[in-house]
Amino acid sequence: MLLLVHLIAVSAYAGFQWTVRGLVYPQFDQVPTAAFPAYERAHQRRVARVVGPLFAAQAVTSGWLLVDRPAGTPWGLAVAAATVTALVLLVTALGAVPLHRCLDAGWDAAVHRRLLRVDAVRVGLASAGVVLAVLLVD
């Protein structure tokens, strides 16, 4: 059951991350410059309500896999899955969050480009997390 819950958690996050990368962030440059700081702060508040539980679910299931690994679950895959979750959180905390804070002050195309690069890393990690979770379920 834990492996299935983990698969659901990482898949939900990956779907969220692909949506942000493909739909939300590309629209940032369409917001009028004067309105952008308020838009960005509203984005941060709203997205936190969605991503917070998704991060928590991944962290809990990843940690649980390490502490109480189901019988037959390869240790290496469990460690890889937990590592990917940790990297997503790290890239978010050290990359995306500071860039969003920079955008609080106003639109900056260079900061937005950096955010897109950081987000591409998160999309890759989220996708890898799904692959690992599928391998764990098999």
Rank of each mutant, 00 (worst) to 15 (best):
32 P>T: 00
137 V>H: 14
71 A>W: 13
93 A>Y: 03
74 P>D: 15
110 A>G: 06
114 R>Y: 07
136 L>P: 04
129 G>Y: 11
131 V>E: 04
108 D>V: 05
5 V>I: 12
28 F>K: 02
64 W>F: 06
24 V>N: 00
51 V>E: 11
8 I>G: 00
76 G>N: 13
73 T>P: 06
25 Y>F: 15
124 G>E: 10
28 F>H: 02
128 A>S: 15
105 A>H: 15
77 L>V: 05
131 V>R: 05
88 V>S: 09
22 G>Q: 12
116 L>V: 12
52 G>R: 03
101 R>V: 13
3 L>A: 12
44 Q>H: 03
1 M>G: 13
12 A>K: 00
18 W>V: 14
50 V>A: 13
54 L>V: 11
107 W>Y: 15
128 A>P: 08
94 L>W: 14
74 P>E: 15
17 Q>E: 15
11 S>M: 07
14 A>C: 15
13 Y>K: 00
12 A>C: 07
50 V>H: 04
57 A>G: 07
38 A>N: 06
83 T>D: 07
36 F>V: 07
23 L>M: 13
20 V>W: 01
34 A>N: 11
32 P>I: 02
4 L>T: 08
80 A>H: 11
138 D>G: 14
109 A>W: 03
13 Y>Q: 01
116 L>K: 12
99 L>Y: 08
107 W>M: 13
15 G>P: 02
